[in-house]
Design a protein around this nucleic acid. Structure first.
Length: 405
RNA sequence: GGGUCGGUGGCAGAGUGGUCAAAUGCAUCAGACUGUAAAUCUGACGCCGCAAGGCUUCGGGGGUUCGACUCCCUCCCGGCCCA
């Protein structure tokens, strides 16, 4: 039997760090956790893409904090809900996915989440798929479920309001999304659900159902969204996303491209450094004498360390200093075979460093291509034997060692 | 079912017979700069071509025309209002 930790300080931190709101309230949940009862909690992940992103990491991180307290964790894969498409935060209806695409995407999720969450050893997190019960739901049962909500409640959602204002379609099945997500809570009979603040509506639907059907109080903890002071989210649509299956040096770089305003909140939500350290960083950032870059590097290091370990973090950092700060060639360069007499443009396209001949030409014309540090100006230049072993650089960070037989 | 408006490049969104490979914004890419791969600034941004030029693209198909994203027919899809 897993021992439940009831240390008040630890519980306070879990309930405060990165937390936006708690339903019904923090006090009641704290009492529950202090009582020593082992609770069951979950967060759901819709496998809409092959990679989990930093926003997912934030909730996974929170799950792991509860795991450390000894509570029962369910990592739910929304292979069923995913087919509906969560209307949250989307102006357009999500494209329906095939079962194959969904399962393919779900494959890597456990591995990607395991930097934060333990799936083995003592008190391992369990993985569940919500198609297991939702597939079996009958139409009759669905009607009963939907009778717990009114149309008015559904259209209250800001996303639907926005779409109505913009005269964009709202499909009937989109109303069913919170319903099925809520039904997950009932079937798994959970005590608590965790999710981003944008998931509040869906999670509260589960709270209602859990109360109506199982006559049980389901707590809901919503987390702040990882965003800078202007509210700009660090999501995949914003282009500076961090994916959990990204190569260490890419992950490091992606964090470095965050705006400075996200540094402190990044530490708070996506790492496990102590809150005291987070506060120190926050203070340090206010002092203009300090360079935010240094703290961002520390954050990037932490992120890579959690997901890939210390060694990988060291390497990623080293790579960053070398290639970005000092603009030097990285120590490991991918080799690419070239043919004597082949146009450099073709070589670049073949190495996937440009999307088309036109793109390759543009890069050369704009001074983005160099060989052994010498900028290539001539579009017509061809691969020759004396280029063997030289380093081709395309753009800021792509390097290839040219091999000519 | 009726009326009406609409479907344009990764997204948003102009264009309504030639000056359109298609404004603008976002995203992207390259460069400069910097405290970073931030911010800012400059440039590029369908494909082939050194270029001239060619080719493919504006929901699908067909037509009118020297010429269509623009006009006509037809089909498909959507919003709104009415029922």
């Amino acid at each position: 039997m897993t021992k439940v930790i009831t240390d008040e300080k630890m519980i306070d931190e879990v309930l405060e760090r990165g937390v936006e709101q708690i339903f019904p309230d923090k006090k009641t949940l704290k009492e529950k956790l202090m009582s020593g009862e082992r609770i069951r909690l979950y967060c759901g992940y819709d496998p809409t893409a092959p990679s989990l992103h930093i926003g997912n990491a934030v909730t996974i991180n929170k799950l792991s904090q509860f795991q450390k307290l000894g509570h029962e964790i369910i990592f739910l894969i929304g292979d069923f809900t995913c087919m509906i498409g969560d209307p949250t935060d989307k102006l357009a209806t999500r494209k329906k996915m095939t079962r194959e695409e969904i399962l393919e995407n779900a494959k890597g999720y456990q591995k990607q989440a395991s930097g934060y969450l333990k799936f083995d050893g003592e008190n391992p997190a369990q993985i569940m798929y919500n198609s297991e019960w939702n597939d079996k739901l009958t139409f009759k049962e669905l009607i009963e479920l939907s009778s717990n909500f009114t149309v008015q409640q559904m259209i209250q959602r800001d996303m639907f309001q926005k779409r109505m204002a913009e005269e964009k379609p709202i499909y009937l099945h989109e109303f069913l999304y919170p319903l099925t997500q809520g039904y997950d809570s009932v079937v798994m009979n959970v005590d608590l659900e965790i999710g981003g603040n944008d998931q509040m509506f869906n999670m509260l639907a589960g709270r209602t159902l859990q109360k109506n059907i199982n006559n049980k109080e389901k707590f809901v903890v919503t987390l702040k969204l990882l965003a800078d002071e202007t509210g700009k989210k660090m999501g995949k649509s914003e282009g500076n996303a961090v994916f959990l299956d990204q190569a260490p040096q890419d992950m490091y770089g992606a964090v470095m491209s965050w705006t400075d305003g996200t540094i402190a909140v990044g530490f708070e939500m996506a790492t496990n450094v102590s809150m005291q350290e987070v506060k120190e960083v926050e203070e340090a950032l206010k002092d203009e004498k300090n360079n935010p870059r240094d703290y961002k590097m520390k954050l990037a290091y932490e992120m890579v360390k959690i997901n890939y370990g210390e060694e990988a973090a060291d390497k990623a950092q080293e790579n960053f200093v070398r290639t970005v700060q000092k603009k030097e060639v990285p120590d490991v360069v991918v080799e690419e075979n070239g043919n004597n007499g082949e146009k450099l443009i073709d070589f670049i396209v073949r190495a996937k460093l440009a999307s088309s001949n036109g793109d390759a030409k543009r890069k050369i014309e704009q001074g983005g291509v160099s060989i052994d540090g010498e900028i290539v100006k001539d579009i017509q230049i061809k691969i020759s034997k004396d280029m063997n072993g030289k380093i081709l650089k395309v753009g800021k960070r792509e390097f290839r060692k040219i091999i000519v037989k």
